[in-house]
Structures are given as structure tokens and as C-alpha cells.
């Protein structure tokens, strides 16, 4: 396959996926319209997670701390300092980046199973911190942002983040941006180095690449995307509480990415969409709906480790990034 043909196919697949999501807003009923905003924002989180897990081969079990850094960074800025939502969004994304680099400097000294446990422990410490500073964060009860605090003026027009149409299109913009960032990173020479690290870290080091720096950069971008998703989530839905920092929010991205396809760009988006509705349907039937999470994790790891897009790629579709 020529590079030009591959580029065209990649553009067609991911552009098509984005276009489909953009057009969905005209046909979706209200309830699903709101769901899709959640899904698109959470998909950005999944994309960020996948950069680390799927492309760099570092399985994190503590990504909720970066997501929560974005939620709290933006949410507390708006709540306590009346920041403009744009500033708050940037601050939330930056908080995710900052925390990821900080954690990376320590945690990246380990790898494999130890890295999984260290990230899980750090995330648990972060979760407990949100409970400990109950006076500021209000713990499980959380903070609610008013409608007035969630609108801002841009070039003379007022943009109200509680308006469904504005919210949908901004969420779509964020997702499209994140997809573009992922494609750029993954298809760049640096992305190839990340994949090389995943496949054989020692050999990559032998070839003269500074593996530590690449891993730290991957964790940083991953944290940035997770933080951006968290910041967008709190601005769109106006609520942040400790539960977003708890263990399930570290497990969800793993589930979304596994289902869609580890190490694929489009997979996490599809995985998030399917899993969101699976959990939603299970919630209607039973209060112990999290059993679906457990069962699907088991089934994926036992019988379907490549996920949806990954299995498609394995069937002679090697061009899929």
C-alpha cells in the first residue's frame, strides 16, 4: 500500500467517525444527546489513557488521578475564584499534565506489574486527599457550579455551556482535536519510538533512544488529555465529587480501551460508546450493575484481547494506526 493511499484511508476512517458523531446531534433525542456529550468527553480520557497503555506499553491502574486533577483544577477555579471557563479548562488540562509529569518522575523508575501497583497507590492517595480536604472539596458531596459561572463571552457573543447544542459541539471539537493529536503523535517518528518501547524496551535503549524521556513525554501527553477531559466534564455538567477520583474511574478507561482495541486510535472512542450504553442498560436492570464491568473485563482478557478495532486490524488491515 502506498503511503498516500494509507493516509487517505486513515483520514477516511477517523474523519468519517468524527463526522458521524457530529451529525448524530441532529437525530438524537434529548436523553441520548446528553449521553453523547458524556461519551465524547470520556472518549478523550480513553484516548489519553491509550497513548500510555496501548502505544507505550505502560499499564496504569491510576489514571483517575489525572482525570480528577482536571475536574478539580477547573471546578475549584470556577467555584472559588470565579475563573472564566476558558481559563479553567486550560488550568484543568495543565493540572493533569503537571500531575502526570510529577507522578512520572517517581513511578517511571518501575515498570510492568510494579508500575501498575504504584500508579494504583498514588491514585488511591489522591482519592483519599480529596476526602481529607473535605472543607475545600466537600468530599463525596462535591461542588456544584452554577449556570452563570459556566457561561462566558467570546468576541461579543455569550457562550453558555449549559446550552445543549453548544455543549455538544464543544465536546465534539475536543474529541476531534484529541483524535487529531493522537494521529499526529502515533504517526510521527516519536510515536514509532513509543511503539518500539512497547515492543522491546531494551532494544530501543540500545538503539540510542532516551527511553525514560519518551515514556515521561507519553505519560505527560496522556495526563494532559485526561486532565482536559476532566476539565471539560466539570464545565459541561457542573459537578465534581470524590467519586471521580476513586478506583472505578481508573478501571473504566482500561475497559473502554480493551473493548475498542488496545493501541488503536479509533478503538477507545468505539469502546467508550459501547461500554457507556452497556453499563447504562445494566443499571436499569439491577443495582449491582458493576458486575457487567467485571464480566466484560474477564471476557475481553480471556477471549478477545485485541478488542474490536484491533481484531479488524489483525484481519489484514495493517494500515489502521
Amino acid at each position: 500500500m502506498t503511503p498516500a493511499l494509507r493516509a487517505r484511508r486513515i483520514l477516511l476512517l477517523h474523519g468519517g467517525l468524527a463526522l458521524l458523531l457530529l451529525l448524530c446531534q441532529f437525530v438524537l433525542p434529548d436523553y441520548h444527546h446528553t449521553n453523547f456529550v458524556s461519551i465524547m468527553v470520556l472518549a478523550v480520557y480513553a484516548l489519553g489513557y491509550n497513548l500510555l497503555v496501548g502505544y507505550t506499553g505502560l499499564l496504569s491502574l491510576g489514571h483517575a488521578m489525572f482525570f480528577a486533577a482536571g475536574l478539580y483544577g477547573a471546578g475549584m477555579g470556577v467555584h472559588y475564584f470565579a475563573w472564566n471557563p476558558v481559563v479553567a479548562f486550560i488550568a484543568g488540562a495543565a493540572a493533569g499534565l503537571f500531575l502526570a509529569v510529577l507522578v512520572g518522575l517517581v513511578a517511571l523508575r518501575t515498570s510492568g506489574v510494579a508500575f501498575m501497583i504504584v500508579t494504583m497507590m498514588f491514585a488511591q492517595a489522591a482519592f483519599l486527599t480529596t476526602l481529607y480536604f473535605n472543607d475545600v472539596t466537600h468530599g463525596d458531596e462535591g461542588l456544584t457550579l452554577t449556570q452563570a459561572a459556566r457561561s462566558f463571552a467570546l468576541f461579543g457573543t455569550v457562550i453558555d455551556l449549559t446550552n445543549p447544542a453548544i455543549r455538544y459541539n464543544l465536546a465534539w471539537l475536543l474529541l476531534a482535536g484529541a483524535l487529531a493529536v493522537m494521529l499526529l503523535v502515533v504517526l510521527s517518528p516519536a510515536g514509532r519510538v513509543l511503539i518500539a518501547i512497547r515492543e522491546n524496551e531494551e532494544r530501543t535503549r540500545m538503539l540510542g533512544y532516551d527511553v525514560r524521556r519518551y515514556k515521561l513525554a507519553a505519560l505527560g501527553v496522556s495526563g494532559l488529555l485526561s486532565g482536559a477531559a476532566g476539565a471539560a466534564y466539570v464545565l459541561f455538567f457542573g459537578y465534581v465529587g470524590s467519586s471521580f477520583a476513586a478506583i472505578p474511574y481508573s478501571i473504566y478507561p482500561l475497559l473502554w480501551v480493551l473493548l475498542g482495541g488496545v493501541g488503536t486510535v479509533a478503538g477507545p472512542v468505539i469502546g467508550t460508546l459501547l461500554m457507556f450504553y452497556l453499563i447504562e442498560i445494566a443499571r436499569d436492570y439491577s443495582s449491582s450493575y458493576m458486575i457487567v464491568v467485571g464480566a466484560i473485563l474477564l471476557v475481553l482478557v480471556l477471549f478477545f484481547p485485541k478488542g474490536i478495532i484491533g481484531s479488524w486490524r489483525a484481519r489484514g488491515q495493517g494500515w489502521i494506526p
Binding site: L61, I251, L254, L258, A295, I296, L298
Partner: peptide, 11 residues
């Protein structure tokens, strides 16, 4: 590890 996380939620 992933499988035992699944097991955790199932139990």
C-alpha cells in the same frame, strides 16, 4: 491483574 480486577467486581 486485569482478570482479577474483573473477578473483584464479579464477586
Amino acid at each position: 491483574i486485569v482478570a482479577t480486577i474483573g473477578l473483584l467486581y464479579i464477586l
